[in-house]
């Protein structure tokens, strides 16, 4: 069977991201041998881990039919809080305290979106700003640093290796595995798909829609807390704006992985793929000698491309005269 124009359109719409990714990778590999060196690949995965952990949580929110644009500023909050408390109450107490505070933020968003049924875009956009203000209030606007950087065990999460593998990668992998099971194997996971796929039908099936949405935001906040821990542990000091802009990269990774912004589809594994695609493309751009700033433009272009292909896959062709 020969490929006609329509078939090519359908193939592009369905597998476009993967095809684009392969083309990018081949191009980068040809342009710079270092791109496919083992240590470079490990480095990319390692530096993607923080973004990846956040994307795992947002995957639940997006499949549940909502958005979470607050994760970037929430991650700044977690990082600043755990660093500040580290010197005040010690790392053993600082970590659970930071998790508790971050989960409170997630619960608040979950309450507004789930139980009060407010639009998630507005709520989380507002929380992006509000949490940023909260972080600055907490820190007084100053950078936060651990006083005794050499003498704390707190650095294990961000800097150590276990059996030669960097701890952030291990944590990312472990969390991805646990959340895969939660999403694909448990009744709760099934309900997330149902609520995002058709909320009304979920209600008519006796599923507590508000509670399910609430939990997706708790999971997202938990992942943000883990990301904040990794970030703080890696740098042992931080600006107030460390997570700024990450919300869009996270969303890009989730959509790249193939989760629909309309809810009801996507998987944890696909999100991991999306995270890696984003990481490798950004790394490749640097290695071919482009300015760091170019990655902002490319990331944006990738988001647009991904959304376009998502819509195109639904209607079976790249362009349609009817909306």
């Amino acid at each position: 069977m020969t490929l006609n124009k329509q078939d090519i359109g359908r193939l592009l719409a369905k597998q476009g991201i993967l095809i684009a990714f392969i083309v990018f990778m081949i191009g980068f590999a040809l342009a710079n041998q270092r791109f496919i060196a083992i240590d470079n690949i490990a480095g990319v995965i390692r530096s993607s881990a923080i973004l990846g952990v956040m994307a795992l949580g947002v995957t639940f929110v997006v499949i549940g039919g909502n958005l979470d644009l607050s994760v970037g500023s929430m991650m700044s909050f977690s990082t600043i809080v755990v660093l500040d408390l580290h010197d005040k109450i010690g790392p053993a107490l600082a970590i659970p305290a930071m998790f508790a505070l971050t989960l409170c933020l997630g619960a608040f968003i979950g309450f507004l979106v789930g139980y009060l049924k407010l639009n998630s875009l507005i709520v989380t956009l507002g929380m992006l700003s509000a949490i940023h203000g909260l972080t600055l209030t907490w820190s007084g606007g100053k950078n936060m640093d651990i006083a005794d950087k050499a003498g704390t065990w707190f650095s294990v999460f961000g800097q150590d290796r276990i059996m030669g593998i960097p701890v952030p990668i291990l944590i990312f992998a472990l969390l991805a595995a646990v959340l895969t099971l939660l999403l694909s194997k448990t009744p709760f996971g099934r309900k997330v798909y149902a609520v995002g796929g058709n909320g009304q039908a979920a209600t008519f099936s006796g599923i507590p829609r508000a509670r399910v949405v609430f939990y997706t935001y708790l999971i997202s906040a938990f992942c943000v807390a883990v990301a904040g821990l990794l970030q703080a542990s890696r740098s042992l000091g931080s600006q107030n704006t460390v997570g700024q802009g990450l919300e869009l990269e996270v969303l890009a990774a989730v959509i790249l992985g193939g989760a629909s912004l309309l809810g009801g589809s996507g998987t944890v594994f696909k999100t991991v793929i999306g995270v890696l695609i984003l990481g490798f493309i950004q790394n490749g751009l640097l290695l071919v000698g482009l300015d760091f700033y170019v990655q902002y433009i490319v990331t944006w272009a990738i988001i647009i491309l991904a959304v376009w292909l998502d819509v195109a896959a639904k209607r079976g062709r790249l362009w349609s005269p009817i909306a």
Partner: peptide, 17 residues
């Protein structure tokens, strides 16, 4: 609108409640 999650498979729809 009320009976089915159209994007879900047959089995998962049937066992949802």
């Amino acid at each position: 609108d009320q009976g089915l999650v159209l994007g879900m498979n047959c089995r998962d729809n049937m066992t949802l409640p």
